[in-house]
Every structure is written in C-alpha cells, then in structure tokens.
C-alpha cells in the first residue's frame, strides 16, 4: 500500500511538470511579455520605456529559458521559466501583477471563506442527493419515481446562474430573509452562508440525484440483491445495507476527487454572493487580466485535482477490501 502510494505520488510529478510547461508556453511564449505589458498599460499610446519599466518591476525582462549573460547556476535560475513557473512547485506564487500583493498570502486567507460555502454544500448535498436517489430507487418504476426523474431532468436543464439570480431575488429581495451578498468572519458568517449554500444545494440537485439513481438501479438487479430479498429482508433494509454499500465504489469515484478542489470554491457563486474566496479571486484576476494569479490558480487547481485522484485510490481500499494494490 505504502509503496503503491509512493509510486502514485511520483507519477503525479511528471503530470504537474506538464501542466507547468503548458501554462508557461501559454502565458509567455504564445504572447511575449511585451504584449502583456502593452495590454496592461493600454494598447495605444504606450511608450517603450513604460513597457520596459513594467517588465522590470515584475521580473519579466529576463530571458525565457537560458540566461546567457549570467554565470553558473544563475544561467538557469535567473530566467522567467525558473522564477515564474518552476517556483510554483515550492508554493512560491510570487506577487500579483495588478496590485503587487503576495499571491500565497491571498490564497491562504481566501481558502477559509471558499471552504465555508463549498464544504456544507458538498456534505449536505451528498447526503440529500443520495437519500433522494435511494427513495427513487425504492419507488422505482412507479409514478413517484417517474416524477422524480422528470424533476431531476428539468432541474438540470436550468443554468446554475438562474438559481443564483432567482434565489437572490426571492429570498433576499422579496422575503428579506438573508443578506443578498457579502461575507463576515467568525460566527456571524452563518447569516451570509445560508443563501449560497441553499442555492448550491438546489443547483446540484438534478444532475447528482439522477446519477446516483442510475448507479443504484444498476446494482439493484444483481444476484446478491435477489439473495437478500429471498432471505426475507425488507426492501428498505436491502437498499440501505446492500445496494447503498455496494454502490459506494462508483459513487466514490465521482465524489472523493472533488474534495481537495473544494478549497478553490465556485467561481460563479462567490462572485454573485460577494464571498471573498478563491473563486472570486480568480474571477477578479481574469477581469483585471492578472496573469500571475491565473497562472497560480491553474497550478493549484491541477495539484488539488491530482491529490483528489490519489485520495480516490485510497478510499477504494477502505470501502472494498478486495481491492489491493501491488
């Protein structure tokens, strides 16, 4: 097990390097730092001196890959690739291009609010959707099940943004139940969390419930379920003790991988509700064309996704003792 994990972690390194090289190519080779400087400073009426100064302040005036002017190790380290791409591996994200703040510090402080919204949505959602899907499976091939599926398909055909706009309009504007947007630290945060969490739950309902239902229905025709029924167990007990437990593997495949990415929050939700998390940070960076932040978030996102994949593997061995890694 340990050896397998070590190998998995080692296998993740070339993937991260690939992500790193890809983002480097995208951000520095497709468009030169000169292009980016011109973009930031305004395309027209920009002097070459201003571009040089902009590049120098951010360290983009160095060569891309090999610094021929320097000697020794500095030939490699005193370059854009080393300073702005490889340093990401040490979680040294550098400074934002727009306001010069330290990205690493921003990420650390913004993880909390993101998690405060994403984690409840994830946990409550998982429980609620699985329960609903089990109920649909219990009443399978009846009108209850059919209307449940219709509800799911209709719900997943609505863009998530309508849920947010609708939720803000109904709950905050018409009924005055929760603040329309904003966030507060500490214990009073719950007032700001209620609406985003509720909207997140509703928005994810259709697709997830239907997916779980399909998994349960696939399990429900297996032999062991028939055996359980033949023993005289009640349908509810069969569903919870046999079907649910065996359906955990496909469910885990989809669920565990997103857990680390919960830190990143949701782009759209956070910007609509004004939550100072990583999602709104990314949106702000995209709107102000702050490439340093976008670059860091791409790297962080990939890293968390790969961590999620490894966690998925570990979770398999926990739920299914038959799975052994050699």
């Amino acid at each position: 097990m340990l050896r397998y994990l070590v190998r998995r972690v080692l296998y993740a390194i070339p993937i991260l390097i690939g992500v790193n090289v890809l983002t480097f190519a995208l951000f520095f080779v497709v468009n030169t730092p000169d292009d980016m400087a011109r973009m930031q400073l305004g395309v027209k009426r920009v002097t070459p001196e201003a571009i040089e100064r902009w590049k120098q302040e951010r360290g983009y005036d160095k060569p891309l890959l090999v610094n021929a002017a320097a000697t020794g190790a500095a030939r490699i380290t005193d370059t854009i690739f080393w300073n702005n791409s490889l340093r990401l591996f040490a979680f040294d994200f550098g400074k934002a291009e727009s306001d010069g703040r330290d990205i690493g510090h921003e990420i650390a402080t913004r993880m909390g609010p993101s998690l405060a919204i994403a984690l409840p949505v994830f946990l409550v959602g998982l429980a609620a959707y699985v329960t609903f899907a089990l109920l649909m499976a219990l009443f399978r091939a009846t009108y209850l099940d059919f209307s449940g599926v219709v509800l799911c398909v209709a719900a997943m055909s609505i863009s998530g943004m309508f849920y947010i706009i609708g939720g803000q309009f109904l709950v905050s504007k018409l009924w005055n139940l929760a603040p329309i947007s904003g966030f507060a630290g500490g214990l009073s945060a719950w007032r700001f969390m209620v609406l985003p969490v509720a909207v997140g739950l509703v928005a994810g309902f259709g697709e997830s419930s239907r997916w779980y239902r399909t998994i349960f229905l696939e399990e429900i025709n297996r032999d062991y379920v028939r055996t359980a029924r033949a023993k005289g167990l009640s349908e509810g007990r069969v569903l919870v003790h046999h079907v649910l437990r065996n359906a955990l593997i496909p469910i885990l495949t989809g669920v565990v991988v997103v857990i680390p990415s919960l830190f990143l929050g949701s782009l759209v939700m956070e910007s609509f509700f004004g939550i100072p998390g990583l999602g709104s940070y990314t949106i702000d960076a995209i709107n102000s064309q702050d490439f340093a932040v976008v670059r860091s978030m791409v790297f962080l996102g990939s890293l968390l996704y790969i961590v999620g994949l490894i966690l998925t593997d570990i979770s398999y061995t926990i739920v299914d003792p038959r799975i052994r890694f050699e």
Partner: peptide
Amino acid sequence: QYLYTTLSSIPGVLLIAAAVLMMQVYMDT
C-alpha cells in the same frame, strides 16, 4: 495517456480562461 491526464487535471474553466485571455491579448495587439 500522459497527454490527456495532464490536460484533464487542469480545471476546465481555468484552462479556458487562460487560453481566452491569451487570445484577447493577441486580438488587441
């Protein structure tokens, strides 16, 4: 496999955002 694992490990929205931003720079210059 390496190619698609690498590409799919980048969150979709972020990859799209990065690429579109780059194209915007190209179109503006």
